[in-house]
């Protein structure tokens, strides 16, 4: 292992890691928004909303994220959507993970015991009140872990945008593999940074989960 090389190039990797983190954070926020809307649609009383939600989930989960990214970035201009690579990355990744989060959030809401709904309805609470004060607080606890799994996947998923030349970690590693012919060193460096990001995120999720379980 060529440690001199690693010491020479690591600042560029750290810079790239910042881009990876930005991509991850922004796309996860967008994903959560899409997931909340998607779950709302899928659990709606209106058949047309349910259908729209189901179509979103099915189409996004039925096709590769890479293709979705390509449609947005390369195909976008044809239908009047001009985005730079970073913007396309955030939107593409966010909409993609949103479909998975839709199912996570919906699953957590459904998993809350039916008796809870019946109990609050017999107390005279309305549908929205039941959802807001009884179901959602319980569902929120149930969804922290599975959302954590989605988030973990998304951090690794940000690597996809290397294919549309966003200068993030994987793209940087690939470029340095090309110029130094040292794939193991570059993998080692990028890999460690990914694992650190994922590890720290995991700690945060565990902390949230523990706090939620106490209440």
């Amino acid at each position: 292992m060529d440690f001199d090389l690693i010491l020479r190039v690591y600042p560029y990797f750290l810079e790239a890691a910042l881009v990876t983190i930005q991509l991850a954070v922004l796309s996860i926020i967008l994903g959560l928004a899409c997931g909340a809307l998607g779950a709302y649609a899928r659990l709606s009383r209106w058949a047309s909303l349910r259908f729209a939600g189901a179509t979103y989930v099915s189409v996004i989960r039925g096709t590769p994220a890479l293709i979705q990214l390509f449609i947005l970035y390369f195909g976008g201009p044809q239908i009047g959507i001009q985005l730079d690579a970073f913007e396309a990355g955030v939107i593409g990744l966010g909409v993609n993970i949103g479909a998975y989060m839709t199912e996570t959030i919906r699953g957590a809401i459904i998993a809350v015991d039916k008796g809870q709904i019946e109990a609050s309805r017999t107390l005279g609470m309305g549908g929205w009140q039941t959802m807001r004060y009884v179901i959602l607080p319980q569902a929120a606890r149930l969804m922290i872990r599975p959302l954590g799994v989605n988030i973990n996947a998304q951090i690794k998923g940000t690597a996809l945008v290397a294919a549309i030349s966003v200068v993030e970690l994987t793209y940087t590693a690939q470029r340095y593999i090309g110029s130094t012919y040292k794939p193991f060193e570059m993998f080692f460096l990028a890999g460690i940074i990914y694992m650190v990001i994922i590890y720290i995120t995991g700690l945060g999720i565990n902390w949230l989960d523990r706090r939620a379980q106490i209440k």
């Binding site: 690794k156 998923g157 940000t158 994987t170 990914y194 694992m195």
Partner: peptide, 8 residues
């Protein structure tokens, strides 16, 4: 499990 498939 801790690194992206593309990198692998």
């Amino acid at each position: 499990m801790g690194t992206p498939l593309l990198l692998q």
